[in-house]
Computed example of a mutant assay.
Amino acid sequence: MIRALALAATSAIALSACSYLSQPDYREESTPPQTVASVDLEKYAGLWHEIARYPNSFEKGCTDTTAEYGLRDDGRISVTNSCTKEKTGKRDVAEGVAKPVEGSNNSKLKVKFAPEWVPFAWGDYWILHLEPDYSAALVGSPNGKYLWILARDEAPDQTVIDRILKKAEALGYETGPLEFAG
């Protein structure tokens, strides 16, 4: 039984790594993008709606996607990503954890959806733009493989989306590949 669990975990990690390596990158800049100056994690916590994303394997066939962040007693952040699968209509939920990168003023996080004992499964989650009232955000990976526009409302004002798209372009991210919800 333990051998089967270890094999399953190893297989999941290998598949995850292959998915990451095959994910195209939509940012050709050689320098890392600038993140926001700081993030108040208490204000950032709560429910966010996915407005747009780069195509990726783990969200394929997902609609009505949300991310919910919560502060934990150990200084980390709980992450609950949910979506409705188009084919089945069922809600799919992934539980993870995030931790702030030291010296980043909470603008750079490491996120993991693998078991705690897996040491190398952390991914970059950088907050690249944040509306002053914490109503919308641009988050992604510095290598350009992942990018999301998140908002508290399911349908934020188009001027907010346009402002975030301009910020993404200014940081060197392609906006053409973004898939918009709805």
Rank of each mutant, 00 (worst) to 15 (best):
I2C: 11
I2F: 15
L5R: 11
A8N: 07
Y20C: 04
Y20I: 04
L21Q: 14
S22G: 05
R27G: 07
E28K: 11
S30A: 07
P32A: 14
P32N: 13
Q34G: 04
S38P: 00
V39H: 00
V39D: 01
E42K: 13
K43R: 10
W48M: 10
A52Q: 06
R53F: 09
Y54W: 12
S57E: 08
E59V: 00
E59H: 00
G61N: 05
A67L: 14
G70L: 13
G70H: 08
R72C: 09
R72K: 07
D73P: 05
I77T: 01
S78A: 11
S78Q: 08
C83V: 02
C83H: 02
K87T: 04
T88I: 11
V97K: 01
A98D: 06
A98Q: 02
K99C: 04
L109E: 04
L109N: 01
V111L: 03
K112M: 07
F113V: 02
V118M: 04
F120Y: 14
W122M: 05
L128A: 14
H129P: 13
H129Y: 15
E131G: 09
S135E: 13
A137D: 12
V139Y: 13
G140W: 12
G140F: 12
S141D: 13
P142F: 09
G144D: 08
L150A: 14
R152M: 15
A155N: 10
P156Q: 06
Q158R: 04
T159N: 09
V160T: 15
V160Y: 06
D162E: 15
D162T: 06
L165I: 15
K166I: 08
E169H: 07
G176W: 03
E179R: 11
F180G: 00
A181H: 01
